[in-house]
Each structure stands twice: as structure tokens, then as C-alpha cells.
Amino acid sequence: MFSIKETLNRTKLKEKKGMTTKLSHYVNERGKINWMHSFNWSKESVMSRGILPKSLCNSKIIQIGAGSLGASVGELLIRGGIEKLGIMDFDLLEMGNITRHTLLIDDINKDKAQSLADRLNRASLHSKVTALKGDIKYNLTNNSKDLERYNVVLDCTGEDDVLNELEDYTWSKPKRFVSISLGFGGKRLFFFSTTAFSFPNQTFKKLVLPWLIKEQTYYQDYSLPREGLGCWHPLFPARVDDIWMMAATAVKNLESIFQEQDISVFKVYEQKIVDGVFSGLELIEEVKFNE
């Protein structure tokens, strides 16, 4: 231990000898303090510029689909403060995905789920992202115990096979189901959410079918490179700005439903073009229903 008086005497002696004019740098004749900058890396400090509602951040979300839409949604969720996120996908990243995917050239031919989980874990100190390889059928059969830990099932594929599997499976506790999918060209967003023991696929189909018919009629002269509503095919005609805009809108709606816990809703958003100029997104249908 050293006394303050002795320290002051020593620093005064050093000043007289011309050793330094910065008295606070020394505590004795041999010891110099090297000051270092410190930073507060707590979640509250890091996320002070913007964070999703606590009820959403504390949720455990299993996301099905790590394509361009799923990757964008996952990025927004993690950077918004989500703490637990599982990413499920069976596919590898292809060169054709790169134009609008958040993954990079170094990730080509690698597992999408694992690569995306690795990326998102590097994006946040306060989140844990886990990769689940394989499709939904494989994971429901072999990893059901792990999946039961999640309270939100977020589908970002819009694929019939995925929704059929979610319809056939009965969870031990009610889950918040959310389905996010895009229309042709990324010009429309279809957002569906409800709470149930199984995904109410028949209700979803009833609500979305009129829009599918409308799209098929409007784009009948186009060659559609995929089935269903997803954007998983590399030839799906939508730019990255379309994907990001719709992903952000989907996250805004996730925030909204977590502020109204019991709401079941189907929404359709559409890009508005006036005289050839983009004028914004418009909510063109909203249906609230009871399951």
C-alpha cells in the first residue's frame, strides 16, 4: 500500500527533476500508469440506438428458410436484439443466390443454414444463432425435442411442402406461427400469423388463394421458375432492394403482433408505382380472424 502524501511528494520530486509535467502519469519512481479507453458492451448500451420490443427479443424463434428473404429477415432480427434464433435449411449456397443474399462469395457451395448462423453470430454479442441442417420433415422427425424449445415458428419459404408438414405436426404447446412470402417479382408481401398447436394451412390457403389466382392471371405471359410463393429459386425475378424492403416490412409486422399477443392476421402489402415511379408500399388487404 502507498499513501497519497508519499505519492504526491514523489511526483513533485519528478517534476523538479524534469521527468514529466503530467503528474497523473506516475504513482511512484518506477511505476507509470498507462491509461486505456473502456467501452460499455452491455446489451442496453449497444442497442441504445434501436431495439425491438422486449417481448419479441426474449422470444425463441425457429426460422425455416435461409434463402434471400430468410437471410434478410434473420439479419434484421438479430441486429434488432433477438437473443435466440434457429436457422433451418437443407440447401447449399449457389452462385445465382449471391446477387441478393446476405452471404458472400466465400460461402458458395457451403451449407446455407450454418453459414448464415455463423454470420449472424458475428453480428451480435448478445444473440445465439443455431443452425439446423435438413428440411422441415427431417427435423420434425429427428429433432422435435430441440424444436419444442422455440415458441415462434417463422416460415420464410412459402413452400407447400413446408406448410403441409407444419399442418400435420402437433406441438406440445401452442406456437406463434408466422408465414412470410413474396409474390411475383417481389412486388407483394404476404404476411400470415396466428397461435395454434398446428399450422392452420387450410385457413392460410383460403386467404392466399385469391391472390395466387390474381398473380397467375396477371403474369400468365411470364415463365415462372418456381412453384408456390417462395423466392428460393435463383431465377426468381426480384432485385435485392425488393427483398430487403419486404423483409423490413415483415419485421415491422412481427413487432406489431407481439404488441397484440392474441391477434391472428393475414396481410398483403403491394409496391405502388405511379407514372413509372415507385411511390411506396401500401397495405391492400388485412384480415383478422379467429382460429
Rank of each mutant, 00 (worst) to 15 (best):
T157C: 06
Y26W: 15
M95R: 13
L166Q: 09
K206A: 14
D107R: 03
F289K: 00
L254P: 01
V274Y: 08
R239W: 13
L147P: 04
N97W: 05
F90K: 02
T170K: 15
I105D: 12
V27P: 09
V27G: 13
L76I: 11
I64M: 05
E285N: 14
A123S: 14
F2L: 12
Q220V: 12
F236P: 01
A238M: 10
R100W: 10
G96N: 10
K288W: 09
Q220L: 10
N34K: 11
N151M: 07
T249M: 12
L283T: 05
D89A: 05
Y222C: 15
N253I: 00
V153P: 01
G80S: 04
M95N: 12
M245Y: 04
V208D: 01
R10D: 03
V46Q: 13
M246A: 12
L103R: 13
L116N: 08
D168T: 08
K173T: 15
N164D: 09
L283C: 11
N253M: 06
Q259C: 07
N290E: 13
R30V: 15
L23N: 07
L103F: 11
V277G: 00
S172T: 14
K187N: 14
L103D: 13
I284L: 05
N142G: 01
W211D: 08
A131Y: 09
Q261A: 11
L140R: 03
L116V: 12
L212N: 05
M246Q: 03
K5P: 00
E227Y: 03
V277W: 00
G186E: 02
S115P: 04
V27Q: 14
R176N: 04
K214C: 06
G65T: 01
Q259R: 11
D146Q: 14
K205I: 11
D111H: 10
G65Q: 01
A113E: 05
L120Y: 06
R149T: 14
L182R: 03
L103A: 12
S38D: 09
G158M: 00
R226A: 09
F191T: 02
N97H: 09
R10F: 00
K110E: 14
I263K: 11
P234E: 06
L132N: 08
F199V: 02
S38K: 12
V287D: 10
E215P: 03
G81S: 08
A113L: 08
L281P: 06
K252V: 05
S181M: 09
P234F: 03
N201T: 05
Q114A: 06
D275C: 02
